[in-house]
Design a protein around this nucleic acid. Structure first.
Ligand SMILES: NC(=O)c1ccc[n+]([C@@H]2O[C@H](COP(=O)([O-])OP(=O)(O)OC[C@H]3O[C@@H](n4cnc5c(N)ncnc54)[C@H](O)[C@@H]3O)[C@@H](O)[C@H]2O)c1
Ligand SMILES: NC(=O)c1ccc[n+]([C@@H]2O[C@H](COP(=O)([O-])OP(=O)(O)OC[C@H]3O[C@@H](n4cnc5c(N)ncnc54)[C@H](O)[C@@H]3O)[C@@H](O)[C@H]2O)c1
Lengths: 215, 215
DNA sequence: ATGTCTTTGTGAACGCGTGCACAAAGATGG
DNA sequence: CCATCTTTGTGCACGCGTTCACAAAGACAT
C-alpha cells in the first residue's frame, strides 16, 4: 500500500508539516501513526471534500479569443468540470462548433442554464457586457462566476465571484521585480523595512502586496 | 483639489478604513488631516511604489489560442506593460502578425530577451514544453514568469513564478458551491465548524481553501 | 508478548495581521 | 487668532493562524 508521510508532503508543497497534518485532521483521521497516509485513500477524501467527485456543469459566455481558448482547455474535464454550453451574442457564431461544442446564442441563456442545472458560469465577454451577462446568469440561477472581463461585478449576497486579471498578475511580478532591482540600490523615499514582508523566495504561491488598490 | 477620505476608499474597496490608512502610511504621510488624500497625488505615489510608472517589456511564449488572446488583451498596455515580442516554436507562425505584432521564432528567444531588456515572461505553451521554455527564459535573464501551462515550474532562487490555473479557480468556486448546497443538509462526516472559516459573502477577494493540495 | 521506532493528531504558545480608539494635525469659519 | 470639526496616523489589544513539541497510536522486529 503506497503511503506518504506528512513530512514528505510538506516538503513537496513547501509548507510546515504540522500545518499540513492539522489541515488534514479537519477532514478526519485518515492517517496511520508510524506509517503515514494511504495515498489513494487520502486523494479520494480530499477530492470528495473539495467537491471534485461530482460533476460540475459550467457555461462559458463570450466565445472570442479568450473564450475559445478556455473552451479548448483540457484542464477542465480532468477536474470534474464539464462544459455544458458555449454562449455568445454574435449570431454569426451561433451553431458553429468551438472545441467540438456548438455555440449557442445568448437568447437561450436562461434556458440553457436551467436545462443543465448549471451553477457555475464563466464570463469572457468584453468589459462593457460583463455586468449585464452576469445579471442574467444570476437571475437564471448561477451562483458562482469566474470573471475574465476587467470589471468589478456586483452581485447579490450568496453569489461568489472570482476575477482573473492578467494585468494584476503582471503587476505583482513587476512589484517584486522592482524590489529586486532596487534592493541594495535603495536610496530615496524607500519603503520602510516593515512593509517589505517576507521575500517570497520563489516559493509562496501568494504574493505579498498591499491589500488595497483603488480602481 | 479632488480628495478622498480613507473612509470612502475603504467602503469602496470593502475593507477596514484603519487598515487602509495603515497600509498607506507605509508609503509615507500623503494625507491631509481633516481633508483626506489628494487623489492625483495618491494615485501617483501608489503607482510609483507598485512599479507602474516604469515601462515593463514582456514576452509571450506560445502563441496558440491562449497566447493570441493574451496578445490581444488591451489591459496590458494600460498598466505599463508593453508586449516586446511574441514567440512561438512553430515555423508556420513566424512572421505572421498577431494583434499587430509579428511572431518571432523561438530560436531567437535569447536574443529577443537581451535586446529588449525583458525581465518578465509569459508562458502559454503546452505543458510539456513549459519547463524547457522556462529554463531558456531564465537563462536569458528573465526573473519573473507568469505561467499558464498546467505544470509546476522549478526555477532557481531569485526568480518569481506566478501560475494562473483556470481549473483551480473553478475548484474554489465549486468548493464554495458545494458548501452552499450542503449548508443545512449537513449530515454525514461533515467538516467541523472550525474548518468552515468565514463564509466569504461575495466580498473577500481571496478564497478560503485548505492551503495544501498534493499534485 | 514486549520493546522499539516512526509518525500521527493536537494542546498550547507564539507571532502577526487586523481593528479599535484616540491624540495630533490641520482646515475652516467666526 | 481662537474654536470647532473633520480626518489622519498610530499605539495597543485582540483574535486567529501558524508552529512547536509531545503524548498516543500503531507498525514491525525480536
Ligand atoms: N483576464 C485576462 O487575463 C484577460 C485576458 C485577455 C482578455 N481578457 C478579457 O476577456 C474578454 C474577452 O476577450 P477576447 O479577447 O476574447 O475578446 P473578443 O472580442 O475576442 O471576444 C468577445 C466575445 O464576446 C461576445 N459578446 C459580446 N457581448 C456579448 C454578450 N452580451 N453576450 C454574450 N457574448 C457577448 C462577442 O461576440 C465576442 O465573441 C475581454 O473583456 C478582455 O478584456 C481578459
Ligand atoms: N491557465 C489556464 O486557465 C489555461 C487556459 C487555457 C489553456 N491553458 C494552457 O495554456 C497552454 C496553451 O494553450 P493553448 O490553448 O493556447 O494551446 P495551443 O496548442 O493552441 O498553443 C500552444 C502554442 O505553443 C507553441 N509551442 C509549442 N511548443 C513550444 C515551444 N517549445 N516554444 C515555443 N512555443 C511552443 C505551439 O506552436 C502553439 O502555437 C496550454 O498549456 C494549456 O493547457 C491554460
Amino acid at each position: 500500500m503506497p503511503t506518504v508521510s506528512s513530512e514528505e508532503l510538506a516538503a513537496a508543497a513547501g509548507v510546515n508539516s504540522a500545518k499540513l497534518r492539522k489541515d488534514f485532521s479537519y477532514l478526519g483521521s485518515y492517517g496511520t501513526r508510524g506509517v503515514g497516509y494511504d495515498v489513494e485513500y487520502l486523494v479520494y477524501q480530499i477530492s470528495r471534500e473539495l467537491g471534485l467527485t461530482q460533476d460540475w456543469p459550467v457555461v462559458i459566455v463570450g466565445i472570442g479569443n479568450l473564450g475559445a481558448a478556455l473552451a479548448n482547455y483540457g484542464g477542465f474535464a480532468s477536474r470534474g468540470f464539464r462544459v455544458a454550453a458555449l454562449i455568445d451574442a454574435d449570431p454569426a457564431l451561433a451553431g458553429k462548433p468551438v472545441a467540438g461544442i456548438p455555440v449557442r446564442h445568448s437568447d437561450d441563456l436562461e434556458k440553457i442554464i436551467q436545462d443543465n442545472g448549471v451553477s457555475i458560469g464563466v464570463i469572457a465577454t468584453p468589459a462593457g457586457a460583463a455586468q449585464q451577462v452576469c445579471d442574467r446568469l444570476v437571475a437564471a440561477g448561477v451562483t458562482s462566476i469566474l470573471n475574465f472581463a476587467p470589471t468589478v461585478l456586483s452581485v447579490p449576497d450568496g453569489v461568489d465571484v472570482r476575477k482573473v486579471d492578467l494585468s494584476i498578475e503582471l503587476q505583482i511580478l513587476a512589484f517584486h521585480e522592482q524590489r529586486k532591482a532596487g534592493e541594495e540600490a535603495a536610496a530615496d523615499g524607500a519603503v520602510p523595512a516593515t512593509a517589505a514582508r517576507k521575500q517570497s523566495a520563489g516559493k509562496g504561491p501568494d504574493g505579498d502586496m498591499p491589500a488595497v488598490m483603488p480602481a
